Amino acid sequence: MSEAMLALEGVSKTYNKGRENEVRVLDEAALQVRAGEMVALVAPSGAGKSTLLHIAGLLDTPDSGTVRIGGTDYTGLSDRRRTVARRQEVGFVYQFHHLLPEFTALENIVLPQLANGIARAEAQTRAADLLARVGIGARADHRPSAMSGGEQQRVAFCRALANAPRLLLADEPTGNLDPATSDQVFGALMTLVRETGLSALIATHNLDLAARMDRVVRLDQGQVVAG
């Protein structure tokens, strides 16, 4: 069995701690995503899946428990170390693409690479390759406003993979698309994940999409259980 690319152990998170409306969102949750594995995370709204993804991606810290990516324990590290790790190890995709409207598709994928110290020519080559892989290479010079919702989300996928992360985290990545477009766009995402060999944890309400992944887990009363 391949090693765990993402390992959450005993992760707990409570909001409004100590108040009357205290909410324990995660309760000693544990989860492993192996290298090269696609895992679907299924849960109703408000169950804590976004919180779990933010903790897994080092955007938030748990009250207790450990978060390991690629075998490295990032629990308790400084904000600077966590920021560097996010930039190099983790790619994020959200329900809404959040592309920069004043830049082209290619430029939206180049910019995070420049921020990571990649030379412009190399960044442009990688951006063009990623766009070609998801079937919209011809749209490289278009700004988001001139692209369809499905095309914009494909650009967002490419941007998430711009710095060649080892872990992809996606929160309802096709939730804002119609069923037909959702199916096509998710297929593009699966192609990217399989071709690059990275690990992926993808939160979705769509059980058909979840079934196409390697494994399904769900959140139940703050804990991760088999789907």
Rank of each mutant, 00 (worst) to 15 (best):
V42W: 10
A43V: 07
S45A: 15
G46Q: 02
G46D: 05
A47E: 15
G48M: 00
K49Q: 06
L52A: 14
L52Y: 14
I55A: 07
A56K: 00
A56E: 13
G57Y: 07
D63I: 02
S64E: 15
S64C: 09
T66Q: 08
T66A: 04
R68A: 04
R68I: 06
I69C: 13
I69R: 10
I69P: 13
Y74E: 12
S78M: 08
D79R: 12
D79V: 06
R80V: 10
R80L: 13
R81H: 13
T83E: 15
T83C: 14
T83P: 11
T83L: 14
A85F: 04
Q88W: 07
Q88G: 07
E89C: 04
V90H: 08
F92M: 01
V93N: 00
Y94R: 01
Q95R: 03
H97W: 03
H97T: 00
H98K: 04
H98I: 04
L99W: 03
P101A: 07
A105Y: 10
E107T: 02
N108C: 03
I109F: 06
I109G: 05
L111S: 06
P112C: 10
Q113F: 05
Q113R: 05
L114A: 05
A115F: 15
N116T: 11
N116E: 15
N116G: 15
G117Q: 12
I118F: 14
R120A: 14
A121K: 11
A123Q: 12
Q124F: 02
Q124D: 12
T125E: 15
T125G: 14
R126Y: 04
R126D: 13
A128T: 10
L131M: 02
L131V: 05
A132M: 06
A132H: 09
A132S: 12
R139L: 12
A140T: 08
D141Q: 15
D141R: 10
R143S: 10
P144R: 01
A146P: 02
M147S: 04
S148Q: 12
S148C: 09
G149M: 09
G150Q: 04
Q152R: 13
Q152T: 02
